[in-house]
C-alpha cells in the first residue's frame, strides 16, 4: 500500500509556542484517514500543514519534512499554488463564494486560465454529480449559491474542490456546522469519494471517525499518540491515553 504523504519529524511553532511535536505519519492513497483528539490538540493545525495553509498565519514556523507524492512540499522550490491544486480543502463552515453555483465550481479551473465554455460545463456537471448535488441543483446552476441549505453548501464546497481534479481532499471538521441528516449525506459522500481521492478528515466526533475512516490518528497536546487502522484504534488501542479518550474519560 502506497503512502501519498510521508511526514517526518514535523514540528510547528506559533511564535514561541510549539503546536506540533515530532509528528511522523504515512497517509495512504485512496483511504480515509481521520484525525481525532480534544480541542487544541493540533489536529487542525496538522491538516493545514498538508496544503501549507499555515503559511497564511503570521509567526507560524514549520520544521521537519512532508513529502507529498515524493515531493518535499516545504522545500523552497515548491510552488504553493500548484500544491493546492493537487491537495484540495473543505472547511469547517460551508464557505461558498457569493456568486452563482456554476461560478463557484468553475472558479478554480478559471483561475488556472481555463476559458473553454464546453469544458467548464463538463467540469461543473461532473463535479456536482460526484458531490451528489447535481440532482438538487441542475436546474438552477446560475442562481446564487448562498440560497442553498447548509448541507448543500458544504457539498458545493466539496464539488468546488473536486473541480480541480485534486489527488487529495482535506476536510477540516466538515460536518460540525451541519445537522444530522446533512452530516450523514456528507459521510456517504466521503465513502464514495475515496475511490478516486485520498481523503484526510479532522473530526470532533469519534463516532464519525469510526464510521467513515480506514485509519485514525489520535492527537494530544501536539503529539500523535496513536496512529493505526481505525478498527485497531477503537477496539484495541495500545496507548492508555487513547483508550481513555475514546471511552470518554476526558476530552
Amino acid at each position: 500500500m502506497k503512502a501519498y504523504f510521508k511526514v517526518r519529524d514535523l514540528d510547528l511553532y506559533y511564535g514561541e509556542k510549539q503546536a506540533l511535536n515530532k509528528v511522523n505519519m504515512d497517509i495512504y492513497r485512496n483511504k480515509v484517514t481521520a484525525f481525532i483528539g480534544p480541542s487544541g490538540c493540533g489536529k487542525s493545525t496538522f491538516i493545514r500543514c498538508l496544503n501549507r495553509m499555515n503559511d497564511l498565519i503570521e509567526g507560524c514556523r514549520v520544521e521537519g519534512e512532508i513529502m507529498a507524492n515524493g515531493e518535499d512540499i516545504y522545500s523552497s522550490k515548491t510552488d504553493v499554488v500548484n500544491l493546492r491544486t493537487r491537495v484540495g480543502m473543505v472547511f469547517q463552515k460551508p464557505n461558498p463564494f457569493p456568486m452563482s453555483i456554476y461560478d463557484n465550481i468553475a472558479y478554480g479551473p478559471r483561475c488556472q486560465g481555463l476559458k473553454d465554455k464546453k469544458k467548464l460545463n463538463e467540469i461543473v456537471e461532473r463535479s456536482l454529480k460526484q458531490a451528489a448535488l447535481w440532482d438538487e441543483v441542475h436546474d438552477r446552476l446560475h442562481e446564487s449559491a448562498m440560497a442553498l441549505s447548509g448541507g448543500q453548501q458544504q457539498r458545493l464546497c466539496i464539488a468546488r474542490a473536486i473541480a480541480m481534479e485534486p489527488e487529495v481532499i482535506l476536510m477540516d471538521e466538515p460536518t460540525s456546522a451541519l445537522d444530522p441528516i446533512a452530516t450523514s449525506k456528507i459521510e456517504e459522500l466521503v465513502d464514495e469519494l475515496k475511490k478516486d481521492y485520498t481523503i484526510v478528515i479532522v473530526t470532533h466526533s469519534m463516532q464519525q471517525a469510526s464510521r467513515i475512516s480506514d485509519y485514525t490518528a489520535f492527537f494530544l497536546l501536539g503529539e500523535v499518540i496513536e496512529y493505526d487502522l481505525t478498527s485497531t484504534v477503537f477496539k484495541n488501542p495500545s496507548d492508555k491515553r487513547t483508550e481513555d479518550y475514546i471511552t470518554g474519560r476526558f476530552g
Binding site: L56, M89, C111, A161
Partner: peptide
Amino acid sequence: DLEHASLALGATETQTNFKV
C-alpha cells in the same frame, strides 16, 4: 474563510483579491 477557500483552490493572492 472566503479568502482561504480561494487560496486553497490554488488561486493566487491577486486572483483572490479581485475575484473573491
